[in-house]
Nucleic acid binder design. Sequence first.
DNA 1: TATGAATGAGCCTTCATTCAT
DNA 2: CATGAATGAAGGCTCATTCAT
Lengths: 218, 218, 218, 218
Amino acid sequence: MASSAVDSGRPAESGHPRRPRSRAKYEQRRREVVNASARLFAERGYHNTSIDDLVEATGLQRGGLYHYIDGKQHLLLLTHEELIAPLLARAEAIAAADLPAEAKLRELLRAWVAHVASHRDHMVVFNEERRLIESDPAWHDVRDARERFQSLLEGVLREGDRTGRLVMEDIGVVQMSILGIVNHMPQWLDPEGRLAPAQVADRCLDLLLRGLLPRRRG
Amino acid sequence: MASSAVDSGRPAESGHPRRPRSRAKYEQRRREVVNASARLFAERGYHNTSIDDLVEATGLQRGGLYHYIDGKQHLLLLTHEELIAPLLARAEAIAAADLPAEAKLRELLRAWVAHVASHRDHMVVFNEERRLIESDPAWHDVRDARERFQSLLEGVLREGDRTGRLVMEDIGVVQMSILGIVNHMPQWLDPEGRLAPAQVADRCLDLLLRGLLPRRRG
Amino acid sequence: MASSAVDSGRPAESGHPRRPRSRAKYEQRRREVVNASARLFAERGYHNTSIDDLVEATGLQRGGLYHYIDGKQHLLLLTHEELIAPLLARAEAIAAADLPAEAKLRELLRAWVAHVASHRDHMVVFNEERRLIESDPAWHDVRDARERFQSLLEGVLREGDRTGRLVMEDIGVVQMSILGIVNHMPQWLDPEGRLAPAQVADRCLDLLLRGLLPRRRG
Amino acid sequence: MASSAVDSGRPAESGHPRRPRSRAKYEQRRREVVNASARLFAERGYHNTSIDDLVEATGLQRGGLYHYIDGKQHLLLLTHEELIAPLLARAEAIAAADLPAEAKLRELLRAWVAHVASHRDHMVVFNEERRLIESDPAWHDVRDARERFQSLLEGVLREGDRTGRLVMEDIGVVQMSILGIVNHMPQWLDPEGRLAPAQVADRCLDLLLRGLLPRRRG
DNA sequence: TATGAATGAGCCTTCATTCAT
DNA sequence: CATGAATGAAGGCTCATTCAT
């Protein structure tokens, strides 16, 4: 999915069997459904959101909803695709850029945090329903994309380690720590809050790059 | 619960309405049930674990299970209590110790990571079923304990900031980053793995205290 | 409910949360369900009637049943509404009519007994599950209607007492006796039996108006 | 049961299989249990009273309770026996007395109302769980006693009709009306209220004997 | 496309009763 | 006699999904 999603924005194999008459309207409706469900799933959790809740939130009827999705889980899949595809594309670009490792890390983090801020609902769902990603074959593409993203991060770190621009005892711990930091953000980062997402990203970079101990020279 | 749990480790008021004559055996069996359920919940998720799964895992029958719990959710509560009470007690001791802030942070992190490693199941459940904690009144004590723990962490950071032994632009971001790092650990930390939990804690401390950029003098 | 039920006979607010498009068919099916349940409840008692019994009796499946009701108790509520609304309307009319008290009493009793005869099942349920009526807030309207009916009866008696057309030592005892007489009828009155309901009503009136002792003149 | 209950006060065949050591204490305990259950059954209904409620009310433990009863239904049986036996005995005596019919009716009603007043709980249970009486073979004796009582009432009425001391168009209707009046009493008669039970009985007699219409001569 | 009635498997929980101790 | 842990059938209810219209 990773690449196809990035390329075409719509993987043919996850569409509804019955071809829609007017593609554009269908797609728009469908995106509305996905966003509504992302919001509800984030708010009350996947398992605490019933199809009826979605019916109410979308204005569709029970049967009509199923014209746009293949089931409740499918909605989760669509949510993930919408979350991960654009971010992955951006991360690929950054990783391929001609920048020193610490700059790549900075850009990656900024893009990532911005994405988390603008896709908070999707991100919450993503974190909470991890289990499905890990087992179901239908999720292969999402799994792939996630792994690809992680390996991009790892690549940046590894590059920094190799070039000496980043110093770390254990790359895995650093990688997982960064993942933990960003994955946790949806729970406290407020786009309207004291710190804008871009500032939060920079504060995290301060922490990651310079640490907490005082330095002789800034 | 917070204080009583720290004091006695066994809040009397969450027991079964009908008091058993031999408390010890009852308590032991109950703990078995809680641990079995923590394992299952961590493995397949709270919502994907049925009472029948628990029946199978505990060796009890459906009705017998209800001698020890007040319902499925109650099990979640018990899981949290078992997770949070001892850790909070330890954290209180560390925060009150006569140590510089960075040492407190180190001890706190070591204790915390060790606890996560030894209570991986409970921790996974804790992270995933956060939503319940936030709303249900029965969870007030757990909520309290969690907040208490966070404010202990914040206190240590604030103390470091005040004394100049820790340098940070924004305490909140640092606090949340640390939470994110540790909360994420159950997903990758393997007690039998390449790095022992204590080592992982120290690698995280490296990252947090010294950052990734090279220093003039180590 | 009291007034709205009397006016329209169909309280809109007790319908299913999700509004059906074709109201008529829905209402008809629902009434079928209510009547079937009234029959079963009368036959074997509310607590001895399972949802599965209702499933069997209605021809619906378990889930389908719940399109029409909000739960087993709701069925009881609907039963009561169907019983009490039309009778109350009739009683209001009689009480307001320009008739001497003893004639009002006669008309009231005739209408009442006829209603009991034609709603035997509902009446049996009504008598047996009195307890719910008395406590649950959802039953407020039914409670109201019942009280209204009783106060209509009391009004007639009081009027007769005032005008001297009825003689009684204690109105309360008379009122309760009449209630007892009619409430007991579902247990013995047989619409197909020796005495038609109208005759039973008249025989009761004989008893109530003239008593058992012989009179000088008929 | 009818006669044996009246004679010995304890039918041997409904005792617990295991013979108790000290009969007296056993019997006392058992009566306590029956009365406690009658109170609870009357208060919240048979089906809404759990064995645990009885355990709590009696101070016994779950297992211990079963030394005194054969099951929950058995408790109902005992309740009925306690209610019906003494009343039936009294009714037999009255029916056999050398009194005119209207005096027998008066005495019967007085005794009956007094019994209802002093056994309100039992009576409530009796009325509500009528269904069991009607079907279960274990209830044969209770059924018998109830029928015997009704036929005593009918006998008095029939005698009055024959001797001309009571005038009625239809004996059945009168009999059932009287039953209805008295069976309804537990719902409103308050032994501590405005009217003492004896007075209530007399007011009912007024109604039954003289009716509501004014008479030429009182 | 859209509707909403209907499905039916599955869920959590209750509870009268038994029995080893 | 007494205990209370354990049983296991049965109960009411939810909910994702289907399908005739």
